[in-house]
């Protein structure tokens, strides 16, 4: 075999390896989903969704976890969106290239890399203890808000950056002030991108477990929270709790809850991708 043939062979082998690895990733995804559905599908029914947790695995449901997740997300949206979008606007439109903005930039990029469990410790120290909110929905959602803030800020900045400069100039030239330009031109044009970022960040928040464990979300909450100062459980907490139990019945329940959680996650990601594509098309 001469040199040329040898090179050709290496080239071709690598191509096949690359293909294999790419499909391996997708194959693992398929195995994961298949196995979980195989174990958990028997639990997917109305009773499971509307039952309270129980000491007996076959009676246990995810009602409180779903309500807890919904409450938590609602509050998180309320805190994180205005602050995240506002911070993104500030960095992109007001603070360009100042000392403060480069400090903010380094800081945000660092926050994005802080492990989620550290946010849990922050929430424990500040919200649970210092402000004395306890292991409540309020503490949990504030903690998650801080956790997803960098994602929303980065997405907002990217989306605003994509707005053509000529549109802003046109608005200024017509006598619009900065805020009028942001409100009437920049935000409408970047809406799709910002929305995509928000949905992706929420899909991340919905699956978070570790920071909530630290903040004190309880795995066993036999009642539905009545106020934002009540303790709560969420879907991933419920899954974690059932996974750590030795009985096979709880593993089945956990798989059932995972199916629900994955469905929510996939749907949210799907919506986000849809909005992103539509927005990118519109931008061109």
């Amino acid at each position: 075999m001469n040199n040329f043939q040898k090179n050709k062979l290496i080239d071709h082998s690598f191509k096949i390896l690359g293909m294999l690895f790419t499909f391996l990733g997708i194959l693992i995804l398929a195995i994961l989903i298949y196995n979980i559905v195989k174990v958990g599908y028997t639990r997917i029914n109305w009773t499971f969704l509307t039952s309270l947790p129980s000491r007996k695995p076959e009676n246990a449901g995810i009602y409180t976890a779903i309500i807890g997740t919904l409450d938590l997300m609602l509050l998180t949206v309320l805190f994180a969106i205005p602050v995240g979008v506002g911070a993104g606007i500030y960095l992109e439109e007001y603070a360009k290239k100042s000392k403060l903005s480069s400090l903010l930039e380094i800081n945000i990029s660092n926050l994005a890399g802080v492990p989620s469990i550290i946010y849990g410790l922050l929430g424990l120290g500040v919200f649970v203890r210092f402000f004395n909110f306890g292991g409540s929905i309020l503490s949990g959602s504030l903690t998650l808000s801080l956790l997803i803030l960098p994602i929303i800020i980065v997405a907002t900045r990217e989306a605003i950056k994509a707005v053509p400069h000529s549109l802003k100039e046109a608005s200024f030239a017509l006598g619009a002030s900065k805020w009028q330009t942001i409100k009437n031109v920049v935000l409408p044009s970047s809406f799709g991108g910002i929305l995509t970022g928000i949905i992706l960040s929420l899909s991340r928040a919905i699956g978070e477990t570790a920071p909530l464990i630290v903040v004190g979300a309880m795995a066993y909450v036999p009642f539905v929270p009545q106020s934002i100062f009540d303790t709560f459980s969420v879907l991933p907490m419920q899954i974690f709790n059932w996974t750590t139990r030795p009985q096979q019945g709880f593993a089945i329940a956990a798989a059932g809850a995972i199916i629900v959680l994955l469905l929510i996650t996939f749907v949210m990601n799907g919506i986000a991708v849809y909005f992103r594509n539509r927005w990118q098309k519109k931008l061109q």
Binding site: G25, I28, L29, L32, N35, I36, S203, R204, I206, G207, E208, T209, A210, P236, I239, F240, T243, A254, A255, I258, L261, L262, T265, F266, N269
Partner: peptide
């Protein structure tokens, strides 16, 4: 999608 799956699901897996 692999990166979007909640880690608690990976733990179970």
């Amino acid at each position: 999608i692999l990166a979007a799956i909640p880690t608690v699901v990976y733990g179970f897996f």
